[in-house]
Every structure is written in C-alpha cells, then in structure tokens.
Design a protein around this nucleic acid. Structure first.
Lengths: 183, 183
DNA sequence: ACCGTAGGAGAACGCTCGTTCTCGCGTCAA
DNA sequence: TTGACGCGAGAACGAGCGTTCTCCTACGGT
C-alpha cells in the first residue's frame, strides 16, 4: 500500500466514521481500525486529527459539488436546472445513512473551537451559493433569487437531517417553483 | 441560596457557556465557576451533564418561542405577522454573541450520541413550525406555505450562524413576501 | 549474508473531564 | 451544648483519546 492509497483509505474511513457518528465520538484508533492504515502512517499523512477532518471536508466538498453539477447539467432548460438542484437534494436525502449536511454538522461540533474547520465550512457554503448564482444568472433571473434559493436549500438540508425525512426537498422545490413563477 | 435559585444560576451559566462555546468544550467545572453553584449541588440538581444540557434547551425553548410570539403579536395584520417573524430573526441575528441556532448547534454536536438532546431539538423545531402553521392559518393561507416559510427561516438561522451576518434574515423576508404575494 | 531503513502492532504517556469522595465548617433541633 | 446534617472546596478516580514511543519484522541494496 503506497502513500497515495493509504491516504485514500484513511479518507474513506474518516468520511464514513465522521459523517456517520460525528467527529468527536470517533477516535484516531477507530480510523485506523476501519482503514487498515497504521497510526504511524496516519500521523505521517495528517499531522493531527484536525487536519484529517479538514481533508475529509475538502474531498467531500469536491465530490458533493461535482455530483450536484453532473446531475443538474443533464437538464437542458435553465429554469429546469434550478429546480433540479432540489431534485438532487431529494435523492441525497433518501440515501441510506443520510445524516444531514456534513459541513453544518462539523460546524456545530467544531466551529467554535477549530478555525480550520470553520473556514472549510464557509468555503463549501460559498461554493454552493456561487453555483446557485451561476444557475440563476444563466436563467436570466435577478441575482437576489440565488440567495433565496440558497436559504431554501439550507433549510431543507438542516430539516431533513434533524427529522430524517426527504420531504423538505419537495417543499423547498415547490417554494422555488413559486419564486420562479413569480419572478 | 435555595434549591430554586441554585437551579436558575446553574441554568444561566450553562446557557451562557454552552451557547457561546459549544457543549463539549465546556466542563462541569466551568459551569461551577461561572454559576457559583458547587459541583455537589449541580449533581443534585442534574444527575448528569446530559440532563443539564437538556434542561438548558428546554428553558431556552420556552423563552425563545415566547419572545418571538410577543414580538409578532404586536402586529395587527395576519400577513404582517408572518413577515414579522423574519424581522424578529434579523433582530436576533444582530444581538451581540449571536452564534447561530442553539438547537441546531446542539444537534450537530450531540445529535448522534444523545437521544435526549436529539428529542429536544426535534421538539423545538416542531414547536416553531407549529407556530408558523398557526400564523399561516390565521392569515387564511394554504397550509403548504408554512413549510416553505419554515425552511426559509431555518436556512436563514443556519446561514447567519455560519457567516456571522444578519443579512439572511432580510433575504428570507423578501422570499416570504414574494411567496405571500404569489399566494 | 548483512545492514539500514520503513513500517506495523500496540503499549505508553499525558491531558481532559465527568463523576464521586473526603474533609472540615457552620447551622439548627433537642 | 451537642450532635447530626447539609453543604462548599477541591482532591481523587477512572475512562477516553490524541499523540508518541518501543520493539520487532521484512525487505532492498551491496
């Protein structure tokens, strides 16, 4: 197992464990057990747990936004693309093991104590919001709409996480549809 | 200092510390130091830290929803009342020391490990949502609107917490106004 | 064959923190 | 006055865990 593969395995384990059980209730020893990467190697790759958390959030951010964009861009119409964001959320919420937004969970746990984690969360949310702004601009809609869609999406993620239901995605989609209709 | 006063002081300290720094980074010894209530007394009043957290969330829920209702009910018009919810959020977001929604923060920190805390969070959100449903019904608006307003409010709280800005309240208010206008 | 090095397993260390215990003082009933 | 009790201060205990260290094995180059 070379360095790159060890890194991937460590991040796979970190993602599964941190997202599923929360960061603080997972020890480095759990990451070792799940990944098969020894503690020594883990600390060579990530000098401290905080940096493993950061790397987990970075990698997940890339994949999350990539999958969203891939899904959305299958729709040809600009207005359809905007609504597709909420369809994708619904699909995500229904995945087994869904436990809310990884970044908001991490922020609740570590935002007050880790500046690196807080910065990652802000970067992810900024990226998502920027993506919505791009979709809104491409549809020739007013800028202000993007912020409103963003709030609907955030509310849906948080509510789906707490209530363990996919329903908020449909509610948010309907609200978005009405905002589009009225705009 | 009798039992009731000790309880209030303990909860005052718990609220200040848990909300300001997160639950996990505050020790029972910090609560003792801030409240002036001895550890022995604290453990008489709350047999475990988890129950102090629970009591903190319960008491804050009562006050939070009470203050919201008091603010909203100063407006006579039903539609105005709905929008007043977002004005109140804006006021809350601007308070010094605002650090996001206490319940969502607690959920991110403890939702995965404490069923009691998770239940309190769900109860609080259910109560808030029910309040919106009442306002919507009183305005003669369709039920579905309440869920949409709820998502806007949740999105605004979460975004205001992460970005340390009151702006999301105004964005959510504008979206709500448009949903009302279109409904 | 031999040495140097990398890496794995897991013990060890040090700190934090939830919870309990000890001790000593003040109070109040009889 | 005395003795039982409640309580505060803070030490003590024990578990969890991030991080480092020790020891041993395996292997690659000469």
């Amino acid at each position: 197992m070379d360095r790159a593969e060890a890194r991937e395995r460590a991040l796979d384990a970190a993602e599964e464990l941190f997202y599923g059980r929360g960061v603080q209730s997972v020890g480095m020893d759990d990451v070792r057990g799940t990944s098969g990467v020894s503690l020594k190697r883990l600390y060579q790759l990530f000098p401290a747990k905080e940096q493993l958390v950061e790397a987990y959030l970075v990698r997940r951010d890339t994949r999350w936004r990539g999958e969203l964009a891939a899904y959305v861009e299958r729709r040809p119409e600009p207005d359809e693309r905007i609504l597709a964001v909420f369809d994708w959320l619904a699909k995500w919420f229904r995945e087994p093991g869904f436990r809310g937004c990884a970044w908001l969970n991490a922020y609740g746990e570590l935002g007050a104590t880790s500046e690196r984690v807080a910065a990652q969360v802000r970067a992810h949310k900024r990226g998502f919001r920027q993506y919505l702004e791009d979709l809104v601009a491409a549809a020739g809609r007013p800028d202000a709409l993007a912020g409103q869609l963003f709030l609907l999406a955030e509310g849906a993620m948080v509510t789906a996480g707490v209530t363990r239901s996919a329903e908020p995605a449909a509610e948010a989609r309907e609200a978005a549809r009405r905002l589009l209709g009225a705009g």
